[in-house]
Design a binder for these strands. Structure first.
Ligand SMILES: NC(=O)c1ccc[n+]([C@@H]2O[C@H](COP(=O)([O-])OP(=O)(O)OC[C@H]3O[C@@H](n4cnc5c(N)ncnc54)[C@H](O)[C@@H]3O)[C@@H](O)[C@H]2O)c1
Ligand SMILES: NC(=O)c1ccc[n+]([C@@H]2O[C@H](COP(=O)([O-])OP(=O)(O)OC[C@H]3O[C@@H](n4cnc5c(N)ncnc54)[C@H](O)[C@@H]3O)[C@@H](O)[C@H]2O)c1
Lengths: 246, 246
DNA sequence: CCGAGCTTGTGCACGCGTTCTCAAAGTGTG
DNA sequence: CACACTTTGAGAACGCGTGCACAAGCTCGG
């Protein structure tokens, strides 16, 4: 398949815009969400191994490195286009480039963290984000005692200045690390300030309008899921094969 | 759902996995994984609202509180048994009890954290875990400068004492917050010491033997997924309504 | 005791994701 | 060029999860 061109680059025409089909400059087909979630795994696997000196990598090898099924790797990559060569494998450099383009890793994303408590500080200090183009540029908190405090080379900004600072830095991605009670309000303010992607650590149901993405990470829930299966095992069940990739 | 599953452990042990039925003392039927992941949501929703004075709650109301579909709530709860009353709803207290029993929240789980860096410290200081019966009892790190250091009312223990301390405290659940490079080795040591559930924050593929559960939380991947959809939106696509329960 | 009004529990259809499988398409050797 | 070997790409089958729709079952007022 894959007949109608990946060739036709450039911004997609208005005619192509459909509700359920994702037509973009980079890829012509809809990429399943499960695949999107695995692309970072492939990216990381390709980056980490010294495989880059080798020109090509097979789906089998990549599957092994990423910890998934080989058929899945092939199907996932086929959504990006036919980048492989039969009998040979995938060109490592090219694949890396395509994946990072697809994930938006070729550009920098300014990020804001709201709620500079235990977790927010840990995130602010984390060096791993920058490597993927996620630059934490703004730290926001409501606690007056914290405002102005220096963390790394950033100074904590008051929640009152949220709108201004978020706009100034052109923030598209916000990280929410406030207590649960403040989550919805802060999310609303972020959205109002132009943020369209939110990563939420607060254990609270929290809704955002159409056109804004929100992903939740709830560590307590993760523990409870582990506890569930732990309990089963103790009472004679078998372990669940499950493992999540964010 | 999100369901971003990756099989793990031994090579190609996929086929036989699904076969086994989960029959335990507590519930007669197999509970789907997606349901297990939502039970904590229901639990939290029930605990948070003042709904407890009200004797019963309808699936519709609970769905609203938990941010899911009402039919889903009913189906999920039906896996636990027929605890509802038609025309009335679910008895709140009883439902809470059943869910917490199913999730193993009626008992205490001693937890160990390995890797007391930025993230490990945040987790160690977090008060939210204890409320669900997850008691962080052991902090472990390899850095000699950190060993003996006091965090909260716990003292950091050397990685050399991992086996002994984990056994002494009867730890079943371990949290892995070391750098990626050390993840597999630490996981192996935890498993060797008797840990059968691991929550892994290190961005690394990491395998555990059959009979051990492992869940991964990779924050960088979450950001990359957000970035993917953010990029699409910019180029004219529609936003994905997606939000993870997990 | 009956009927109106709710709410649960579940059968069912549908869509998504996974994985098996194999033809197609490449490489390399003699 | 023929042939053996490798590896991709995709068709197809299957299983899981979701959500609609509705009968079964409960309460309550009269
Ligand atoms: N720390 C962890 O390991 C951990 C684990 C799981 C979940 N969480 C969740 O992450 C969130 C943060 O946890 P934490 O331990 O960092 O909490 P924390 O109390 O240490 O920090 C919360 C911070 O948010 C700030 N804040 C409160 N209201 C605010 C508002 N309206 N606007 C801006 N800032 C505001 C507070 O001043 C504080 O600095 C919580 O929702 C918590 O449940 C944390
Ligand atoms: N901090 C964050 O916000 C964040 C975000 C995403 C992912 N992560 C991941 O979480 C993990 C921890 O992150 P961090 O920021 O806390 O890192 P960190 O470097 O601050 O802490 C790591 C700790 O692990 C200890 N350690 C190293 N090797 C060890 C071993 N073999 N046994 C026991 N302890 C060992 C180190 O002494 C250090 O104290 C990393 O894998 C990181 O990629 C962290």
């Amino acid at each position: 398949m894959h007949k109608l061109g990946t060739l036709q680059a450039g911004p997609c025409s208005a005619a192509e815009r459909r509700k359920d089909i994702w037509v973009t400059a980079s890829s012509r087909r809809r990429i399943p969400e499960a695949t999107v979630a695995r692309l970072p795994l492939y990216y990381r696997a390709l980056m980490e191994t010294g495989e880059r000196q080798v020109a090509t990598i097979s789906s089998e090898r990549l599957a092994e490195l990423a910890g998934v099924n080989a058929a899945k790797v092939r199907k996932d990559l086929s959504y990006l286009g036919s980048y492989g060569t039969r009998g040979v494998g995938y060109d490592v450099e090219y694949l890396l480039h395509e994946i990072s383009r697809e994930l938006g890793l070729t550009r920098d994303w300014p990020v804001a963290i709201v709620g500079i408590g235990n977790l927010g500080r840990a995130l602010a200090n984390y060096r791993g984000f920058g490597a993927r183009g996620f630059r934490v540029e703004v730290l926001i908190d409501a606690d007056p005692a914290l405002v102005g405090h220096q963390i790394g080379d950033l100074s904590v900004v008051s929640i009152d200045d949220l709108d201004r600072v978020v706009r100034e830095h052109n923030i598209a991605i916000g990280i929410l690390a406030t207590p649960a009670g403040a989550a919805q309000e802060v999310a609303d303010r972020l959205v109002a300030a132009g943020v369209t992607s939110i990563l939420n650590f607060a254990p609270a149901v929290c809704s955002v309008p159409e056109g804004v993405s929100m992903r939740k990470v709830d560590l307590a829930i993760e523990l409870q899921i582990l506890s569930f299966y732990q309990l089963r095992r103790g009472t004679g069940g078998t372990a669940p094969p499950r493992e999540r990739t964010g």
